[in-house]
Amino acid sequence: MKDSTAQSQKARNTTSFYHHSGAFDAEASGYLVDQAKHPEVLRLLFEHDPVPVYDLPYIHSQYREHAYDGPLVIQPTTAESEEWLQRWLAQGSALAVYGPLLTLETIRNHLVSLNTVATPYGDSLFRYADSATLGSLGTSLSPHQRLRILGPLTAIHGCYAGENWTLTKEQPSALQDELKKQPPQPLELTQENLASVEAHRRYLLARALADSNDLEAQTVTYWLQQLETLGAPNEQGLVEGAGVLIARGFIKALSDDELATVRKTRQGADWSDTLEALEALTHSQEGT
């Protein structure tokens, strides 16, 4: 991100991202839902709110034709719709946004400026309405990135993989005045940001496999690292490899000798050959 030194220091001092187990504040300024993940949301909105107040940020950008597959911002007008969206927030299906005196137009205009993000591989759509995006990215965000994502908002709350998270900032008037004086720069994600997202996904995968098979999460983490060195082509390949090890009764990380045996005995370069070598691998691993 390209900010002045002064603004960078203010961003560092006033912004934060953290996971927590506390309850979410009620009466948000608005809610965000990713329609690609929840295509039924507009129908449900009209069921809970006879005259809903909402907007589709993609309509106001070059992605107009994808408006009903993109983010939806809602300002509930009834207690019923507020309660429904709070439930969706708690289950990870919606995000809550906060800020003093925020109009729907202000929220929408800010979101439009976040529709795309610059990455080392080129510009990409930024799925900011999906709780998984900020939930996996949040800990790697720099102070300026946090400030850029929040813009006029003071906080965004979400839940991802059973963990509540909050992106927030204090709101000193001097910082707000500075932000208003300059047009927003494009949000940029670095290689480190993308690596952090991948690492977080890998952590969640290891935790899920460990929990469902009564194994140590650290053991499964080691397996995934070892399977990657053996040539697992993708996440599905990692799951397949871990499944073979679980079925074969492995309870510890593979030894150097076992890794060497797999490399030596597999018949070819295909991942299926590696899986067959894993299935043929003998071991004497015992619990502690």
Results as ranks from 00 to 15, higher is better:
187 L>N: 03
177 D>P: 00
209 L>E: 04
124 S>L: 11
125 L>N: 00
174 A>C: 05
117 V>W: 04
133 T>E: 13
183 P>V: 12
198 E>L: 07
124 S>C: 04
135 G>I: 03
173 S>T: 15
139 T>V: 10
126 F>N: 11
148 R>K: 13
200 H>E: 15
191 Q>L: 13
134 L>Y: 01
161 A>V: 06
135 G>D: 07
135 G>R: 04
178 E>S: 12
140 S>G: 13
207 R>D: 11
123 D>P: 02
173 S>W: 13
172 P>D: 02
123 D>Y: 03
125 L>K: 06
172 P>W: 09
201 R>V: 00
116 T>C: 03
128 Y>T: 05
162 G>R: 10
128 Y>I: 15
167 L>Q: 11
198 E>P: 00
212 S>Y: 02
177 D>N: 13
167 L>S: 09
155 A>N: 06
120 P>K: 04
194 L>M: 09
150 L>R: 15
183 P>I: 09
151 G>K: 11
142 S>V: 10
124 S>R: 14
123 D>C: 00
172 P>F: 08
142 S>P: 08
151 G>Q: 05
190 T>S: 15
125 L>E: 08
191 Q>M: 08
140 S>F: 02
164 N>H: 15
118 A>K: 14
154 T>R: 08
146 R>F: 09
182 Q>C: 01
163 E>H: 11
192 E>M: 07
208 A>G: 05
141 L>I: 05
199 A>M: 10
132 A>D: 03
157 H>R: 09
132 A>W: 08
130 D>I: 05
133 T>F: 10
158 G>S: 08
184 P>H: 14
203 Y>W: 11
120 P>L: 09
144 H>Y: 11
198 E>Q: 15
174 A>D: 14
175 L>A: 09
124 S>G: 00
